[in-house]
Design a protein around this nucleic acid. Structure first.
Lengths: 320, 320
DNA sequence: CTGTTAGCGCTTTCAC
DNA sequence: GTGAAAGCGCTAACAG
C-alpha cells in the first residue's frame, strides 16, 4: 500500500506538496497538482487516517450514545446530529447501549484514548460520579438538564412540559390522569414524576399508583397499557403518553377494545412525529432534529459548559 | 496530557520499558514495573490509541453493517459477534444503514482508510461490483451465500430452508401457502423466492401474487398482513413468516380477528427466539449467536474466502 | 509556490 | 532485563 512518500517520489515532488493537494490547500501549481493526482490514481493511493489522526491530534469522529437506534425518537435525534456532522465533515460512531452501563463505559474509554473527539450522550445511565472522571478527556454533551454539571447540554424542561400538559388536561375537565414512562430512573423521568406529584398536590388530587405505566416505549406496548386499563375499576380518564408511537399503539388497541377516544380516554403525547398527524394526536411537539443539531454543535465547540433549553409547542388535535 | 516519554522520564526508565509494561511483556523487573505503574497513576496516563494504531498498522476495530440495530434478529447476531470480539480484544463499530447505500459506503471507506481492520456485512444492499473494489483493503465478510465471490461468508441455505418448510406445510395438507419477506431484493430474498416458485411448480400449484407479503419485519407489521389476509376471498391456509416477532404480531392480531391458529391459518416461522416458545410457534431455529461468532472469526482471520453454511433445525410446536 | 524537517505517541528490532 | 533508535504515515511550521 503506497504512502505519501511513494506518491511524492512518483510525482517528482515533496511530501508536503502531496499533503497540500491531499488537504486542498491553495497555492499548488496546476502541473504539480496534476502530477500528484495522477500518481495517486496509479498507485490507488489511500490516506491512512490513523496517521492523520495522530498527527492532528483529533479524529473527526464523534461518539453518540443511545439506548436504542431503532426507535423513532432516537432516530430523529440522530438524524439531527448526523446532518450537522456531515456539514462539518465529522463522522459518527454510534454506541447502542440498551441502557447497559458497560456499553457506555466503552464509549467513555474511547473518548479517553482519543479514538473519538467528543461524546454525545442522548440518554445516560452511568452515574455522574463516573462521568465526571471523563470530562477531562474531551467534550461530553448531554441531552438532559445538566446545568449543574461541568458539561454542555441541550435539553427540554420536562418538568414544565409535564405540568403544562397536565394542566391542559385539567382544564378539559380531567381529574383522573395517568401517564406512561419508559424508565423509572433517569433525569427526565424524575423531573416528570416530580411534576406529576406537584400537580396532584396543587389540585388536591389523590395519587394513584395504578395510573402510572412503566417500561412503555413502542407501539406494541400499547397493548400492555390498555390491558391494564381495562382491569382498573376506576381507570384514568386521560393519559399522558411520552411518545407518539406508543400513543398510536394505545389508540389502536383501544379501538379494538371499544374504548372511544377522547370520550372514554383522552390522550396527549409527545414528539409530534408523522404518525401523530395521521392519528390526529394532540401532542407536544419536540424539535428533535433541532436538538440533534445543537447537541452536535456543542460537541465540537471548545466552549465548556454551554446549556440550551429547547422549547416545546402544543399541537392541538383530536385526542383530548 | 502525559505521553509515554513523560512516564519514562518520571519513572527513570526508557520508553521501551514503559511500552513493555503497557503491553504486559514479560521480562520487566518488578521494581521498574512498579515505578512505571506509579508514574502512570500520578500522571493519569492514558495511551493514545491513534498512535498505537498507526504503529501497529491495525486498529482492533471491526465494522459491522446492519440495517437496523433494534430488531431482535440483528440484535442476536450482534451479540454473537460482540461476544467473540470481547474475547479477542476487539471493539465493534456498528453502522446502522437502514439499507441506505450511502451508509454502507461510509463503512467501506473506513475500511479503505484503515480506520477499521475488517468489515462484517450482515445485510448487504450495495452492489457486488462496488464491493469488489474494496476487498483489497481488508477482510469483508458476508452473512449471505457468497461462495462465488472472493470474500468470506457465513450463511444459511435459505433456498433449502424455505423448500423444507414449504414441504412440511404441504405434508400437513396445505396447498395454499403464502409468505412474508422484508426486502424484495437481496440474496436471501431471492433464494427464498426461487424456492417458492420451484415448490409451486413441483406440486403443480398456482402462483398467487396476493399470498406474498413484503416489507414485513416487526410485530406491528402483523396487523398489515392480517388485514390483507381478511380481504382475500381465497386466502392462504398457511404462512411462512420470516421471523418470530412478526409471526407473533400476526398471531396476536389473528386472535382479535377471530382467526384460529392453526385451524384457519397455519404458521411456521424462523429464528426460534424466546417469543417463539411463549407463542408456541413452530419455527426453524437459526443459531444466530453461533453465526455471529463465526462471522467475527472470519473477519479477523487472514485466510481469504472461507465459507461456512450454518444448519437450521425445525422446532415443532403448535402453530401448524 | 515548494521542499526540508521536526514532530504526533507508540512499537519494535537490535545490541548490550 | 534494558535502552537507543528507527520507523508507522501524515501534518505543519519554516525557510526559501
Amino acid at each position: 500500500m503506497a504512502n505519501i512518500k511513494d506518491i511524492a517520489k512518483a510525482a517528482g515532488v515533496s511530501v508536503s506538496t502531496v499533503s497540500r493537494v491531499l488537504n486542498q490547500h491553495p497555492y499548488v501549481s496546476k502541473e504539480k497538482k496534476e502530477a500528484v493526482l495522477e500518481a495517486m490514481r496509479q498507485f490507488h493511493y489511500q490516506r491512512n487516517m490513523n496517521a492523520v489522526h495522530l498527527s492532528k491530534g483529533k479524529t473527526f469522529l464523534i461518539g453518540v450514545i443511545i439506548p436504542f437506534t431503532n426507535h423513532p425518537y432516537f432516530g430523529l435525534l440522530i438524524e439531527g446530529i448526523a446532518n450537522e456532522a456531515v456539514k462539518n465533515n465529522y463522522k459518527l460512531v454510534i454506541f447502542q447501549t440498551n441502557y447497559e452501563e458497560e456499553r457506555e463505559l466503552e464509549a467513555l474509554e474511547m473518548l479517553q484514548t482519543k479514538q473519538i473527539d467528543a461524546l454525545i450522550i442522548c440518554s445516560r445511565s452511568v452515574d455522574w460520579s463516573i462521568l465526571n472522571d471523563y470530562i477531562q478527556y474531551g467534550p461530553i454533551v448531554l441531552c438532559e438538564d445538566a446545568r449543574e454539571h461541568p458539561v454542555s447540554s441541550t435539553f427540554i424542561n420536562h418538568y414544565q412540559c409535564f405540568l403544562d400538559a397536565l394542566n391542559y388536561l385539567y382544564e378539559h375537565g380531567h381529574r383522573k390522569i395517568g401517564y406512561s414512562l419508559y424508565r423509572k430512573t433517569g433525569t427526565n423521568s424524575t423531573q416528570r414524576e416530580r411534576a406529576y406529584r406537584d400537580f396532584l398536590q396543587q389540585h388536591g388530587l389523590p395519587f394513584q399508583e395504578s395510573y402510572i405505566f412503566y417500561n412503555c416505549l413502542g407501539f406494541e406496548d400499547g397493548v400492555k397499557v390498555v390491558e391494564r386499563l381495562t382491569t382498573l375499576e376506576d381507570p384514568p380518564t386521560a393519559l399522558l403518553v411520552t411518545n407518539d408511537i406508543l400513543a398510536a399503539g394505545i389508540m389502536t388497541y383501544c379501538r379494538e377494545k371499544g374504548i372511544t377516544i377522547p370520550h372514554d380516554l383522552a390522550i396527549i403525547s409527545f414528539d409530534n412525529q408523522p404518525i401523530a398527524k395521521i392519528m390526529h394526536l394532540t401532542t407536544l411537539e419536540i424539535p428533535l432534529v433541532e436538538m440533534g443539531k445543537n447537541l452536535f454543535l456543542q460537541a465540537i465547540m471548545s466552549k465548556p459548559s454551554a446549556h440550551k433549553e429547547i422549547q416545546v409547542k402544543l399541537i392541538e388535535r383530536e385526542t383530548v
